[in-house]
Design a binder for these strands. Sequence first.
RNA 1: GAGGCUGUAGCUCAGUCGGUAGAGCAACGGACUUUUAAUCCGUAGGUCCUGGGUUCGAGCCCCAGCAGCCUCACCA
Length: 503
Amino acid sequence: MSRLRELGHDPWGQRFDGREAIRDLRGRQDEIQFRRANSNETISVPIDLAADPFRQWLGTQGQGELSGPTVRTTGRIMLLRDTGKLIFLDLEDWTGRIQLFIGKTQVGAENWELAQQFDLGDIIGVEGELRRTRTGELTIFAASLHFLTKSLEPPPDKHHGLTDPEARQRMRYVDLLYGDGVRDRFLDRTKIVQSIRQTLTQLGYCEVEGPTLHAIAGGAAARPFATHHNALDTKLYMRIALELHLKRLLVGGIERVFELGRVYRNEGISPRHNPEFTMLEVYEAFGDYGTMMDLTERLIVNATKAIGKGYVLPWGDTQIDFTPPFARRTYDELFHEKTGIDPLDAKAVANLAKGEGIETVGRHPDVIKSDLFEARVEDELVGPIFVTDYPASVCPLTKRKAENPAIAERFELFVHGMELANAYSELNDPDLQEELFRTQLAGMSADDSMARMDHDFIRALRHGMPPAGGLGIGIDRLVMLLTNSQSIRDIILFPLLRPEIGT
RNA sequence: GAGGCUGUAGCUCAGUCGGUAGAGCAACGGACUUUUAAUCCGUAGGUCCUGGGUUCGAGCCCCAGCAGCCUCACCA
């Protein structure tokens, strides 16, 4: 640091204009020429040869030298090989990595003095000629060097990076720099979210931002985080879903609406659950769950295209095939197929449930069936597969089928046992909705103090919500599936951790 | 909330039966003008997660706690 200042360099750097991304530099390797000595003949240099073939190729060209374009770029020093009067270092920016050559006589005394101060992790700027070394490695031959930022902390092991999952999450900045594929995975997350927003916007859906502080946390069955507003002296909850406010907008005549937003649930933490996570909800007036099924498939297919790795993506030791169309099966069909039991035979269902250790006494047959479905069917669903037509009594916000009120117009999309999307034909009968809310609240314990009737939502429905299809997609799980991440903490930049003490 | 596993140098990891705390990388000093996780010589670096206990003696055994990971429950 002090030596840097002595040499007249600012350890914290300044604006650096006119730089090219390292990926773009790699795109310019076809500009490299070989000029034969004693003639003006130039020939282009083969790209992507391994070291030995390149040496052979160079050997057959006779006397001459390589030349290439002058380039200017920046990056962080990831590897450094000091061979005395030569320094090789690997420079990385968020688009890629490239080797830098610094020769003592080539670069001049001042730059050489500066290069002596370089450490792993420092951020530098460089100007030089882009060509190849004797082994064919694409390299910037430094002509001038610029110091941009000092890294005071030592980097982790240059080969392994950070492996301790706690350290990786707490110091995500280090993980992003040194973890294999970490930065690309998070950039893929951004591409997926952008793709969803673009698909919906192009189809004429209107993006809105609902409140995240709710007086009543509704729209899902989960415990909320509670907080307090001082000026109003009132208890508030962080939202657990987007649903009820988006439906109010449907009443208000916003016919195609969506929100991509963070929701908060005060529940356990697991490889598939983080207390705050991102949901997409979409509502379309005059549609139904079938409309939403087509939309879901389109959203996911486009998101898959956005990360550009084809339809068949790796998932652990296996794969997921997102080639459309996705399978569509009814709940009862799958139930029968996986259990061999007639889903309409309540007695047989109850008997099977007992065998699985599921409580049956005093519970609605549909609830027992639902538990069995989760226990025996869901894990078997490799998918992607749409499961349609759920028992009505487990779907309080869903319109019933006109010809069979025991069946709700609902689907869920499953991939490798994970519930990825959930959609309904939305219930818009205010009286039935109020009744179903009451039933739901009756089953809740007294200490679930957030369990309150949302009278304003009922009032909104009384003003007339058009028949509509509604869809929810768990964005984190979609990103997990598309990026082969088995833990939600690998695709949330800063997952919740217990606060560090003493720092 | 319950159970299991893990915690040793800045990082990645060894540590045998309970008997002086180890390696590689990084750091520091030196050699080297075409290296690829450069190589070679040398130096320095420790709250063995924390607190108790057993023991002549604990990184190792016992108890309690803290943190993380996994499984289960709640949830998506």
